[in-house]
């Protein structure tokens, strides 16, 4: 598009200024928003958090670089930061005591299958981190559902005690037809859960930390409220109805919101630009869909978490949603007085 007239002057079409925003800055913003959850992860699960995250990020970067450079023979774009985000999100949805080789394998699937087979950033229909995570979950269910109980700072990986996640405890309890009250006695109070004091993957446990990240993302205009709020709202609404109807069989909506990676998924995974709709209306449909699928899977399906499947399933509908929910064109409906 450029035409150099002489050494001095560039002639290019308007506009001649740019907002100075960049893909890299957006990705950096997402990473900053993840810092509070990261800190809580370290406090709750020890230095293992750092190690798992580090392994995932480095693996994602290496795989992205190698695949682009040697397999696709394209200019590697690792500097855009998207692979780092994928790595962190993958790590955040894994238990801290997961073997390293699984983290590396998950990263390979995330980047290789989830992103590069579709043509790299911008072309992948599914959230790469979730592709990696779900692959691991299905292939290695044992390693992926042995959650460490939070122990606190300074715990080394090996002496972390494993404990089921709150949602796992409920599923298990209901299977043994225990009453909800009995089950709940095995679970920490909501208040403790709010601070992340529960078993779970390393970045999903602290609602408050994730919420701080959410506020940051909104303030920096990196994401809009639509997707996270509709997902969480839908989950709260439907689990709330079920809870009111059958309190002995169902956990409270607060409980559902605080567990199973609902908040991490709603704020950081469902909002992935590439794999989510582009208009507010589309985002709301998307969010409601994820919320519903999550509730259905949690209530009737085999997996206590469910949001991850919810997101992946709705990812598949994004092209359809985008072509159906177009932005409102200026001058489209004319009602002039």
């Amino acid at each position: 598009m450029y035409e150099k007239i002489n050494k001095l002057i560039t002639v290019s079409p308007s506009p001649h200024v740019h907002s100075a925003g960049s893909t890299q800055k957006l990705m950096t913003g997402v990473l900053i928003a993840l810092i509070p959850a990261f800190v809580i992860g370290i406090i709750m699960f020890g230095w293992g958090t750092l190690i798992v995250t580090g392994v995932a990020v480095i693996s994602c970067l290496v795989f992205e670089y190698v695949i682009q450079k040697y397999l696709l023979k394209k200019e590697p774009s690792v500097t855009d930061g998207s692979a780092v985000v994928t790595g962190v999100l993958l790590a955040f949805s894994l238990p801290v005591n997961i073997p390293f080789w699984l983290v590396i394998l998950g990263s390979l699937v995330a980047i290789g299958v989830g992103k590069m087979t579709f043509g790299g950033l911008g072309n992948n229909p599914f959230n790469p981190a979730l592709v990696g995570r779900v692959f691991l979950f299905i292939s290695f269910p044992v390693q992926l559902t042995t959650w460490p109980a939070p122990k606190g700072f300074g715990t080394s990986l090996t002496d972390a005690i494993t404990g089921a996640t709150p949602l796992g405890i409920i599923k298990e309890g209901l299977r043994n037809s225990d009453s909800m009250d009995t089950i709940m006695q095995n679970i920490r109070s909501s208040k403790e859960m709010l601070y992340g004091h529960m078993g779970g993957s390393l970045g999903e446990v602290a609602a408050i930390a994730l919420a701080i990240g959410f506020i940051y993302l909104i303030m920096k205009k990196i994401i809009t409220w639509h997707i996270p709020i509709t997902i969480l709202g839908t989950i709260a609404l439907f689990t709330g109805i079920m809870w009111l109807i059958e309190p002995t069989q169902n956990a409270s909506p607060v409980f559902h919101l605080l567990t199973g990676g609902a908040i991490l998924g709603a704020i950081f995974m469902a909002t992935d630009y590439v794999t989510s709709p582009m208009t507010p209306k589309g985002m709301i449909i998307f969010g409601v869909g994820i919320g519903l699928i999550t509730v259905v899977i949690r209530r009737f399906g085999a997996y206590p978490e469910g949001i991850q499947f919810g997101i992946l399933i709705m990812n598949a509908f994004v092209p359809l949603i985008n072509s159906y929910f177009k932005p409102k064109r200026f001058g489209e409906e004319v009602k002039n007085g």
Partner: peptide, 19 residues
């Protein structure tokens, strides 16, 4: 320029409601 990351910023700033 880099690949489109489908951030929808272009949609949200377009005064004519285009994509």
């Amino acid at each position: 320029f880099r690949p489109c990351i489908r951030c929808a910023k272009c949609i949200s700033v377009c005064p004519m409601g285009l994509e």
